[in-house]
Design a protein around this nucleic acid. Structure first.
Length: 222
DNA sequence: GGTTGATCATGG
DNA sequence: CCATGATCAACC
């Protein structure tokens, strides 16, 4: 197989590309692309996602919007064990530490990102060397009304906290499906936020993540 | 054992 | 520093 040189023209084509690499290992995909798969991911945490992007024809580099803008589809690889259990939370996007006026769930970047997602399960058990980890069947997910409602509730609760100057009281325990955790190179990175009295404070950058239980259900139900 | 909080690499 | 891709590992 060869790496596609252009993005897929439609969702069907994207799905076909994803199905074509299902059952192959990261080692096989790497070899066909002339890329060496690391021995472990301690220093290459984004390797799997970037390799899959390459094979599906997503344009390289980081972009603020979806991986396939024309299709409105976001790509997420999701680590599972050999029983299909989700092993990690899923990063969604950066959490603004200063909420803009007029921000709503409907116009949020979280909802934009999650409006249509192609989940690709990949074995992520640490006992399995990365090169031997197999790619699974893709799942194209569009949130149903119930899922959207749960995400909306979590988003509104968390966003309200930030806008009320309580960002430092937010912990990863909040939120049923969506939660907020630190997201930075290390603990020294700081960014502006609003404090309890409306003053500007410094805080650690945060990101929105999907809980394992939520993505587990998506993978399982599909 | 599962979750929370911390961390790694890369590009702009 | 922000945003992309996430996993690591201390702690409860």
């Amino acid at each position: 197989m060869r790496i596609p040189h252009s993005p897929p023209n439609n969702a069907k084509e994207l799905l076909q590309r994803a199905e074509a690499i299902a059952g192959l290992t990261l080692g096989e995909l790497g070899a066909s692309a002339n890329i060496v798969v690391p021995e472990n991911f301690k220093r290459h945490k984004g390797f799997t996602g970037q390799l899959i992007e390459l094979w599906l024809g997503a344009s390289a580099g980081s972009k603020p919007q979806q991986d396939f803008p024309e299709l409105g589809i976001e790509l997420k690889t999701i680590p599972i064990d050999s029983y299909g259990k989700v092993l990690e939370t899923t990063y969604v996007c950066f959490a603004h530490t200063q909420v803009k006026l007029g921000s709503t769930w409907e116009n949020s970047s979280v909802r934009n990102k999650l409006s249509k997602v192609l989940f690709i399960p990949v074995l992520g058990d640490r006992a399995i060397p990365p090169a031997q980890r197999m790619v699974g069947m893709p799942v194209l997910w569009i949130p149903n009304a119930k899922e959207d409602a749960v995400l909306k509730q979590d988003w509104e609760e968390l966003t309200e906290c930030i806008s009320l100057g309580k960002i430092n009281t937010i912990t990863a325990k909040m939120g049923q499906a969506l939660h907020i955790r630190p997201k930075a190179a290390d603990g020294s990175v700081l960014t502006d936020a609003i404090g309890q009295e409306g003053e500007t404070i410094q805080t650690r950058p945060r990101g929105f993540y999907l809980r394992k239980s939520f993505t587990q259900k998506i993978i399982h139900d599909s």
